[in-house]
């Protein structure tokens, strides 16, 4: 279970981005996680709640976009989406392929932030 470490990583990346944008709170975090990233969404959601307590991410929504694995098929000369992660063969022509075009992503895509209340001069 390394989702706790992953959650710490999210807090770090998000805090840095939010501060740079002049925010004082984060209301939502959007992640892109490939099926080959080795991260379990349920465990991450649980860890996220724990780790974000008393940070500017406290109470924020975690939105996870799971990305399927996409390989390049040399026979079809095209990218092909795989239905799972156990069979790295082209779903249309069955050619094996180790050329992974998508599926290892583990990133913060965007954040929703609350700006500091603006006090008119």
């Amino acid at each position: 279970m390394h989702e706790l470490s992953i959650a710490h990583g999210i807090v770090e990346v998000v805090t840095e981005a939010a501060r740079a944008a002049g925010a004082n709170s984060v209301t939502a975090v959007h992640l892109r996680i490939g099926k080959l990233a080795g991260v379990e969404a349920g465990a991450l959601e649980f860890s996220y709640e724990l780790v974000t307590e008393r940070t500017m991410l406290a109470g924020s929504r975690l939105v996870i976009e799971e990305l399927p694995v996409v390989i390049y098929c040399a026979t079809c000369r095209a990218n092909q989406e795989l239905p799972g992660v156990q069979r790295f063969r082209c779903p249309s022509c069955d050619t094996p392929s180790g050329e992974i075009r998508q599926g290892r992503e583990l990133e913060v895509a965007s954040i929703e932030i609350g700006d500091a209340a603006v006090v008119p001069a």
Binding site: V13, L106, V108, A109, S110, E112, G114, D115, A117, V118
Partner: peptide
């Protein structure tokens, strides 16, 4: 005083 607003910021950074 205006109410806090919400903005979406692209981050695109590896965790």
């Amino acid at each position: 005083m205006t109410a806090p607003t919400t903005r979406i910021v692209e981050v695109r950074a590896g965790i």
